[in-house]
């Protein structure tokens, strides 16, 4: 099983998924991320899925779970870089990723988090 590295940039955590995730790695990432949000006091999480070729219901559920979990820990999650083919497939699959915020790319994801923060004041 491979581990997905979690990078820290200011108070944002960045996770860039570069491997073909098996279900165990997905669960591990979920746990690692929750722990890191708390230990590093992160206020935002960006999950970059630019390199991800498919998002099935298991990975989709991970994204929703992470978003809900980090929100509870006072950090906003943004999923960035979803490929068009992946988005079309998710819609067909019937997965709406409720509660997950998305942005076209990493840069826009960072902007989105900053906006969310300044809105909070």
């Amino acid at each position: 099983m491979e581990r997905v590295p979690i990078l820290k940039l200011g108070d944002i955590l960045i996770v860039s998924i570069q491997i073909d995730l098996d279900d165990q790695s997905v669960l591990t990432l979920q746990e690692d991320l929750a722990e890191t949000v708390v230990s590093r006091g992160a206020r935002g999480v960006i999950i970059d899925i630019t390199a991800v070729e498919i998002v099935d219901s298991f990975i989709g559920r991970m994204l929703s779970t992470i978003a809900a979990m980090t929100r509870m820990l006072d950090a906003e999650t943004v999923v960035v870089g979803m490929r068009p083919a992946v988005a079309i497939t998710l819609v067909e699959l019937g997965l709406s990723l409720g509660g997950v915020r998305t942005a076209l790319n990493l840069e826009k994801g960072v902007v989105m988090l900053e906006h969310a923060r300044s809105a909070e004041g």
Binding site: M82, P84, L90, V91, S96, L97, L104
Partner: peptide, 12 residues
């Protein structure tokens, strides 16, 4: 309709 939803999933 699906396109609009897919675009939203991508952040647009």
């Amino acid at each position: 309709l699906k396109t609009v939803v897919a675009a939203r999933l991508m952040g647009a």
